[in-house]
Computed example of a mutant assay.
Amino acid sequence: MDLLALADFNLVARHGGFGKAARATSRPKATLSRRVTELEAALGLRLFERGARNLKLTDEGRALHQRTSVLLTELDETAAAIASGAEKPRGRLRISAPLLLSQTAMGKIGAGFALKYPEVRLEITTEDRAVDMIEEGYDLVIRVNPDPDESLVGRAFLHDRLVVVASPTLRRPAAGIPAPGVVRGIGDRQTWNVMTAKGAATINIEPVLVLSSLIMVRDAVRTGVGAARLPISLVSHDLADGTLQHWGDIEGSEIALWALYPSRRLLSARVSAFLDYLKQAFPNGTPDELAAYIGR
C-alpha cells in the first residue's frame, strides 16, 4: 500500500473534502484527488461517495480512516523522536473537556502545560457530550462518570460530590414544604435525598430559576433566591466564609473525572506528558485540591 496515498486519503477524510484539505495544507486539489483515486484502485474499494456538493466516507472508507489515521500519527511521532534523539513532547494535542471544569480550571491547566511544553500546540474545547475521539480527531477527552467503553482506557484524576447549599438569608422550610430552588436544565418539581449531621432527610424543591451553567447556578444561589445542588469544590470557599450554608450531601452523588484515550494506540509523548501534568496538579484527586486550584 502506498503510504503517501494513504496519508492523503486521511488528510481528505479529516477535513471532509478535497477542497478543504487543499486549502488547509496548500496542496493542489488535483493531486489529492489523484492520490485517493489511485488508492481506491489499488484496494479495489470505493472510499468516498462523491456527491455534487459534498463528500462522504463509505463504510469501508470510514473503517480505513479509523484504523490507519492513528498509525500514521504514530509513525510521524516516531520519526520526529528519532530525528531529535529523544522522546520529547511536541506537535498538536487536542483535548475535549466538560463545561464546568473548562470554566473553572482548564485555562490555568492549559497555560501551565503550555509553558512547560512549548513545542506542544495545545487545543482545548468544551463539550459536555461524549465526543467521538477518532471521528473528531481528539487525542484525549475528560469525562464525568463515563460509561464503560471498550475502545477507551484512562484514569480518574479528580473526585467530587454534590451538596445542597443556600444563602444564610434563605430559611430552610419545614418537612414537606417545598423550598425555592435554582436548578440546571430541568424545571420540574424535584425531591433531593440528602445526608445531614442528623441523618437522612428529604428536601422538596420548587424551581424558581432554571439555568444552563453551574457557575450561573452558584452565582444565583448566593443572592438568596433559592437552594441548589452544586459540587463541593465549587462552593467550599463560600461555605468556609459563610456566604453559603450547607443543607446536606446528596446521596450517591460521587463524581469522578476521567482522562481517557484510545486503547488501541501507543500512548504518545504529549498525551503522557499531559496525564503526568494532571497528576502533579491534583496528586490526591480530592475536592479540596480542586477547590484550592480554582481559588476564589
Rank of each mutant, 00 (worst) to 15 (best):
R53P: 10
L93D: 09
I82E: 08
E150N: 04
R90K: 15
R94G: 02
R296N: 05
I134Y: 07
E150Y: 09
R229L: 11
T196M: 04
L72V: 00
D241G: 04
G285I: 04
A22W: 01
S33R: 15
G185W: 04
F157C: 11
R23T: 07
E87K: 11
I294F: 04
T126K: 11
F18D: 05
H246D: 09
I232Y: 13
E119R: 06
A111Y: 09
A111H: 05
L47C: 12
A291W: 07
K88Y: 01
K198D: 10
L75K: 11
A200N: 06
D76R: 14
P146T: 01
G226M: 05
L11E: 03
D238H: 03
D8R: 15
N145E: 10
P28H: 03
L75R: 15
L32F: 02
A97T: 06
P287D: 01
R143S: 15
T286P: 08
L140Q: 02
A175M: 04
M1D: 03
T25W: 14
G199Q: 02
A22P: 13
A201C: 02
P287K: 11
L99Q: 11
L211W: 04
R129E: 01
L45H: 13
K108W: 01
L214P: 09
S167R: 11
D149L: 07
L260G: 10
T68S: 14
L290Y: 02
P28T: 02
V165I: 05
W192Y: 12
L57E: 01
R46H: 06
D160N: 05
N284V: 00
A201T: 02
I203D: 05
R14P: 05
A41M: 09
G295W: 06
V12Q: 08
L230H: 00
G252R: 02
T78G: 14
D76A: 07
L57I: 09
L257V: 06
E150C: 08
D147G: 09
Y261Q: 08
P168W: 05
R27A: 12
S84N: 09
V208S: 13
G85T: 03
R265A: 13
D288W: 08
L140M: 10
K56Y: 04
A86T: 13
L122I: 00
V165F: 08
A174S: 13
R62W: 10
T68E: 12
T286A: 05
A179P: 02
L32Y: 07
A130N: 10
R184T: 03
V153P: 11
R46W: 05
L93E: 11
L3E: 09
R27Y: 06
A259R: 03
I250Y: 06
M195S: 13
A175R: 12
A292H: 08
D160E: 08
S233I: 04
E119D: 12
D132L: 08
I142V: 14
G91L: 02
E251D: 10
T58F: 05
L3F: 06
H65W: 14
N10K: 15
T78M: 07
M133Y: 00
V208T: 13
P287G: 08
G154I: 00
P231A: 06
A273G: 12
A97G: 09
R264I: 09
T68V: 07
I186P: 03
M195L: 14
A42K: 09
R143H: 01
Y261P: 10
T104M: 15
I142M: 08
T68Q: 04
V225A: 14
